[in-house]
Design a protein around this nucleic acid. Sequence first.
DNA 1: CCAAAAGTGTTCTCCATACACCCATGC
DNA 2: GCATGGGTGTATGGAGAACACTTTTGG
Lengths: 229, 229
Amino acid sequence: MSPTYEHPRPALTVDCVVFAVERERLEVLLIRRAREPFAASWALPGGFVDMEENLETAARRELEEETGLSDLFLEQLYTFGRPDRDPRGRVVSVAYYALVNLAGGQVHAASDASAAAWFPVDALPALAFDHAEILATALERLRGKVRYAPLGFELLPRRFTLTELQRLYEIILGRALDKRNFRRKIQGMGLLVDTGDAQRGKAHRAARLYRFDRRRYRQLEREGFSFWV
Amino acid sequence: MSPTYEHPRPALTVDCVVFAVERERLEVLLIRRAREPFAASWALPGGFVDMEENLETAARRELEEETGLSDLFLEQLYTFGRPDRDPRGRVVSVAYYALVNLAGGQVHAASDASAAAWFPVDALPALAFDHAEILATALERLRGKVRYAPLGFELLPRRFTLTELQRLYEIILGRALDKRNFRRKIQGMGLLVDTGDAQRGKAHRAARLYRFDRRRYRQLEREGFSFWV
DNA sequence: CCAAAAGTGTTCTCCATACACCCATGC
DNA sequence: GCATGGGTGTATGGAGAACACTTTTGG
C-alpha cells in the first residue's frame, strides 16, 4: 500500500473571512449554522475540501454555495490546526480572506440566499469553533497589508471618487487622513486614471471618477516601486 | 456517525524551509530522500502530522528527527494543496520557515545526523514534489519580512558586531548598505545593547559586541514603533 | 610598520505633515 | 442663495542618502 495510506488523516476544511465596507464601517459576512455542532451560532462561511479540489477552489465554491458571492478578491490567510478546535474530532482548516465591494448588487443575493448577514467588525456576535481567532487574524492581516498593497480598490466599485477612497482608508486604518496630503500622494503614484466622468446626483459639486490601473501597478511593481499609504 | 467522517480526507504533512547565513551566503537545509517517490532526490525536511498534534509541533518534531535542529525561530508560511502535488495521492502540506544561526554548533549535528546538507539559495539542486515552489515562497517572505520585523537577529549568534549585522542584511537583501547610515539607523532604534565586550583574535581593531534587546522590542512594538531597515 | 577592519559627522534632498480657503452643484 | 462636499498650495521639520578619513589591533 502506498505510504500515504499508512497515516491517520485529519479532516480538512476551508473558512472564509469576507470583508466589505458599508455604511462607513468595516463589516464581515457571517452565516448562521443550521447543524450541530454550534447549531444556530454565527460562523464563518466554509466547509470541507473535496478530494480532487484545489484549496482556493474549495474556498470559492463554499463561498458561492453559502453566500452567493463569486469572483471576488481571495487570498490564503493562515492554517488553523489545534487538535481540539472542532468537537467532532481533528479538523484542520485553511482560512482565506476575501474583499468585496457592495455596490455591485451581489450583496442582496448573498444576504437572501441563506441565513447570512453582515456584522461590523467591532460589534461581532459570539462565533462557532475558533472563528473569532481566525477573524482577528484576518483583520490584522487586512489592516497591515492594506498599507503596502493595493487591496483597498477591491472594496470599491470600479469607478470611485478620491473622497470615497480616502474614507475607505480612514475606516480600515481607524484614523483620519489629511485630504490634501492623501490626494497628493495617491495621485503622485500614477496608479489612478481619470475616467473623465463625474459623480452625479449629489447636492454639491460633482466629484471626478477614477479607476485603479492594475496593468500599470503590475508594471511598476516589477520595476521595484512600492505602494505605500 | 459524526459529520467529520462523512468526508474523504487528504493526507496532511508539514514541510520546513530552514535558512541560515554561512560563508557570506544565504543557505537552505535540504535532506536527501531515502524512499520513493523521489528517492535520492533532495527535498525539504518534513513529514506527516500526527492525529493529536499541533501543526507547529509537528513541524518542530520532523525538523528535529530529520536534521537534529531544535529551538529555532519557526513561523507558518503557506499551505500548499494542489491535488497533483504528490504522486501518491492527495497530500496537503502546511509549510513553515525557520531561521537558525550556525555559530551554535548545532549545524554539524544536523549535517551528520542523516543525509542533510546546506545549499546556497542561488545554487539549488532539483527538488522533490513542489518543494521548489515552497522554497521560492519562503525566500520571498524572508526577504520581505526581514525589512519590517527583527528576523535578522535569529540568524546571528546572541552576541554580534555591527559589521556582522550589516553583512547579514546585505546578504539577504542582495545589495550593499552604507556603513554610517546603517549604524546610525540601527543604533537609533535603541534595540541593541552594548555588552561591553569586544571581538577578539582578529588581525585588526576589535569590534564591540552587541545583543538584541527582545524585551525592549516587544515594549516598543506595543507603543506603535515600527522596525524598519 | 603594515594590513585590515572599526568607528565616526556633515550636507543635501526629498517626503511627510500641518494647515485654510474658494469652487461647483443641487435644491 | 445656501448648504454641501470638491478641489487646491505652501512652509517646515525630519529622515534617508551620499560621501572619506582616523583609529585600533594583530601579525
